[in-house]
Amino acid sequence: MADSGIKTRVAVAGLGAIGADVVKALDRGIDGLALVAVSSQDPGKHRAWLAELKTQPKVLPIADLADIADIVVECAPSKLVRSIVAPAVERGKTAVVLSVGALLQNEDLIGLAAENGGQIIVPTGALIGLDAVTAAALGTIHSARIVTRKPIAGLLGAPYLVENDIQIEGITEPLRIFEGTAREAAKGFPANLNVAVALSLAGIGPDRTRVEIWADPTVTRNTHRIEVDADSARFSMTIENIPSENPKTGRITALSVIACLRKLRAPLRIGT
């Protein structure tokens, strides 16, 4: 495919561990894409490394990103998802969403995208096998389950633990702290269980997808095992993700976003 020279403009909302990696990758260069803007709740905190970029993006309020970008990448706290995604899809543009759990509290955003010709893209993120789940969902999926094991630091402060007075600091053996649906998991662990919601949206929905969460002092990696039983295939997969600077998020999450962006204009695209 010949390069027309016209680049797709990209903005990144959120400059934490994931957002910063995405910004730096865009600045190094992804074919067909140009970084035009970023947004942060504390822009001053990031001024030094932003100044070192080859091309300086504009630093804008979240609501203004969709005015100048074709694609807005959400790498922010889940409470900000609506303010990032709605302006983009209302304008018929694309929003790449990492805090996919928040879509369950803002399901109308999908309809908003449909009405205006916009699109919401959820990268594979820290999970494995979403292509297979998406394909199986075209037939009949009988059951889908995910078992997540995380180090203690990656779960501290989760609303479900606070509300139920579950203490995990100092435990010496693995402790199952939650069992329920993906919808319930997303509400109780908004910073941890985007993987469960992504699995549910690819497959049989958040109310039929089952989730187990373990606080495990014996592991150093965020581990997810999915088990799917469908009329086309039965499969199980496990991934062990090395935490990023933010213990709640794996390093592979940022790489997944970058891979997703590369796919958008790639001459060869692998995977559905």
Rank of each mutant, 00 (worst) to 15 (best):
F178A: 09
N192K: 06
P217M: 00
P190G: 02
N164Y: 06
A202S: 14
W214P: 00
R183E: 11
E169Y: 06
R225T: 15
L161H: 05
R210F: 10
P206S: 11
I204M: 11
E240D: 14
E163I: 08
I168M: 07
T220W: 06
Y160K: 04
P159V: 03
V228D: 01
Q167W: 07
I166D: 10
P174N: 07
N246L: 13
D165Y: 10
R208A: 13
I166Y: 04
N192M: 12
N222C: 08
R176Q: 15
T181Y: 03
L193Q: 15
I226R: 08
S232E: 11
V219W: 00
G188K: 02
M237P: 04
K187E: 15
N194R: 06
T223F: 01
S200R: 04
S244W: 05
T209N: 10
E245D: 15
A215R: 03
R210V: 12
I204V: 12
A233R: 13
R210Q: 15
R221S: 11
L161R: 08
G203C: 03
R176C: 12
A233N: 13
T223P: 05
T218R: 04
A233H: 10
W214I: 03
G180V: 02
E169P: 05
E184P: 07
P159E: 05
G170P: 04
S232V: 15
S236T: 13
A215C: 05
W214G: 00
W214F: 12
M237K: 11
G180F: 04
N241M: 11
N164K: 10
I204N: 10
S200A: 15
E245V: 13
P247N: 10
D165W: 10
N164A: 02
G180Y: 01
G188Q: 00
V228I: 15
F178D: 02
I177K: 08
N241P: 03
N222A: 06
N246V: 10
L201E: 01
D229P: 00
T181H: 07
P217H: 07
R225F: 06
E245Y: 11
P217N: 04
S236C: 08
V162M: 12
L201Q: 00
F178G: 05
L161D: 06
S236D: 14
W214M: 00
G180R: 03
A186D: 00
I226F: 08
S200F: 03
E169K: 14
L201Y: 02
P190T: 04
P174D: 11
R210T: 15
R208H: 14
P247K: 10
E163Y: 09
E212I: 02
N222V: 11
F235H: 04
T181A: 07
L193Y: 01
L161W: 09
E184Y: 05
G170Q: 09
D207Q: 10
R183D: 03
D231W: 09
I242T: 15
V195G: 15
M237A: 14
E173T: 14
A196G: 01
S232K: 11
A215M: 00
A191R: 14
A196F: 01
S236R: 13
